[in-house]
């Protein structure tokens, strides 16, 4: 039995479906919405509806887009010969924030995880290979996460892409800027030494 009126119970139920939101957090959010004025609540509801109605995947790179192509793909100043392959749209944002990359992206929509039953056929790998097959691509930079799933995905893509005659590179692994060497684990430190550069 719910102690709340039906509309509040419904709101709580919907909020609890969100990732990382438990009953307590849902209650806090629901009471914040109840306390705020009607205009704020309407803005929130409209923003949710608008994002669902207008945002879809870019037909070329599968990043989030408002039009057929995302902002990166439709930008004529980008270098279309280099594709950076990432797992999720939020990884595009992380790389764009660096201001170091002027190429285009390909968002896989996940990573291969045999333990979780996620295979390459569930990702946008085929579309990436098709993109390379159309020609004009000189390099693909694989920027999947440096964990088991990301490494599996990188190895799989590398195996498919290399025979197509493109340069396949992997982002470097190493020490985070501002970190302490003594706390680095052996694998990270080993890779940092392996990928050292001349000064």
């Amino acid at each position: 039995m719910s102690f709340y009126a039906a509309p509040i119970a419904r709101l709580l139920e919907e909020l609890e479906r969100l990732p990382g939101v438990g009953p307590k957090s849902a209650q806090r959010l629901a009471f914040h919405i109840l306390r705020s004025d009607e205009a704020s609540a309407t803005r929130l509801a409209d923003a949710i509806i608008e994002v669902k109605r207008t945002i879809h995947f870019c037909s070329r790179c599968f990043n989030l887009a408002e039009a057929d192509l995302c902002e990166v793909c439709s930008d004529a100043r980008r270098d279309t010969h280099t594709i950076c392959v990432v797992e999720e749209p939020r990884d595009v944002v992380a790389i764009e924030r660096t201001g170091e990359f002027r190429g285009v992206y390909h968002v896989l929509q996940g990573a291969i995880s045999p333990i979780d039953g996620i295979g390459p056929e569930q990702l946008r790998v085929r579309e990436l290979i098709d993109r390379i097959g159309t020609g004009g691509i000189e390099e693909i930079i694989i920027a999947t996460n440096p964990n088991v799933e990301g490494e599996t995905t990188a190895l799989y893509i590398s195996r498919l892409a290399k025979p197509l005659g493109v340069r396949v590179t992997r982002i470097a692994s190493g020490l985070p800027v501002g970190g302490d060497l003594e706390y680095a684990d052996e694998v990270t430190l080993g890779r940092a030494l392996e990928a050292r550069r001349e000064m």
Partner: peptide, 14 residues
């Protein structure tokens, strides 16, 4: 986190 003290120590197979 990238600065985690665990790093690769808790990756599967380790």
């Amino acid at each position: 986190k990238t600065k985690s003290r665990f790093g690769a120590r808790l990756e599967p197979f380790s």
